[in-house]
Write a protein that binds this DNA or RNA. Sequence first.
DNA 1: TCTTAAATTTAGACAAGGCTAAAAATAAAA
DNA 2: TTTTATTTTTAGCCTTGTCTAAATTTAAGA
Lengths: 218, 218
Amino acid sequence: MFSLAEENYLKAIYHLESKHKGAVSTNAIAEVMDTKPSSVTDMVQKLADKKVLSYVKYKGTSLTDEGRKTAANVIRKHRLWEVFLVDKLKFHWDEVHDIAEQLEHVHSEELIARLDKFLGFPDFDPHGDPIPDKNGNVKPTEKKLLSELNKKQHGVCVGVKESNSDFLQYLDKKNITIGTKISVLGKEFFDGSMVIQVGRDQFFISKKIAENLYIQTN
Amino acid sequence: MFSLAEENYLKAIYHLESKHKGAVSTNAIAEVMDTKPSSVTDMVQKLADKKVLSYVKYKGTSLTDEGRKTAANVIRKHRLWEVFLVDKLKFHWDEVHDIAEQLEHVHSEELIARLDKFLGFPDFDPHGDPIPDKNGNVKPTEKKLLSELNKKQHGVCVGVKESNSDFLQYLDKKNITIGTKISVLGKEFFDGSMVIQVGRDQFFISKKIAENLYIQTN
DNA sequence: TCTTAAATTTAGACAAGGCTAAAAATAAAA
DNA sequence: TTTTATTTTTAGCCTTGTCTAAATTTAAGA
Ligand SMILES: [Mn+2]
Ligand SMILES: [Mn+2]
Ligand SMILES: [Mn+2]
Ligand SMILES: [Mn+2]
């Protein structure tokens, strides 16, 4: 059994590993955990003792299979609760993260199994992120960023990269949500900005927006 | 905002106050919290500083209005989650307490408001205990213990006093649940045992059983 | 009332997590 | 290859919540 703090560290390291290849640096962890590098060192040494990650002084850490599975399980819980909050309690998709952040630490295998069933065994959370299975496996999906598309290409929005409130509220204003069809009408190579079509509307979006929307094309 | 430990102390003191009149003793708190009296003294002094209870050395403690409201709110959350677990996730009523014990500490007013609505604003939890409203008020119900009934009296089971697994499973075996009609066919004054009728079945119960079943007669 | 027993509090420690300041190791620059 | 800058770790201290052992207070018995 892992403490709340330990679970949060494992989750953070899991996400960092999936973004950048190679060992995760102490400073990177401190950054996302919003804590000091010295605190990270302490915790990482403790987690290494517990065999959930391997740690080499000054070189960084990487999760063991055990650690990866544990982290994936916390993420599984987080995302299932987010589905519950949106689908059942009718929360808006920009309101659920902080609550799920607490719910993810409730310990009960049975609870999650039943919640999963109650929700109809969802594959994705409200932000389009995949929900790991009981064993910590995530089926790989072929999605790309909207910013990778070129003029005249189109696809369906399947997720968001960053999911902070401001961004999600912007998407709502533009009627973009998971499942929305998006077509690229024009693309400016100088700044990466685009003109896209969503439903009947055509409008301009910045590169930053395009880099935070996942699209599935096929 | 109160810590998990503080919330549990407040809840325990709230329950103790409702059972025995007068100030709650340090030892009584230690007993139900399964901790040492010295630890209780420390915590109780801290909670007194926070104005949620009044504490007089060697004399005991009692909740302030503020403390009572805070405690009732934790209990409200506990019971609403129990309703969720039984009604929605189809848990059995003897399996939900420990999970609710964790869920009750998730902080979000909005979450509880929406959960309440999702559950249809229930008045009682799966064990027949009343759910306090947002302001910490519980409507008083006129219920008595089955052991207080005499021969030929009858009523409807509206709750259980102790709700440990063994007892709840016994009740299931006997087909007794919230809403079940129970008639007293005989009562032995020597040991308080009874013969009762439940549906078509008639059987013997000990005084201990009768003292843990709440009945509404009218 | 005097003495013993029970309840309660105080003193001193400990583990988990976290912080700051200083030291050590590694990476980058000259 | 030195020197300097950056990253990371160590050392020492703090807070929360808990515990044991010892001291105090209150209650009970003679
Ligand atoms: Mn989230
Ligand atoms: Mn999400
Ligand atoms: Mn309960
Ligand atoms: Mn209950």
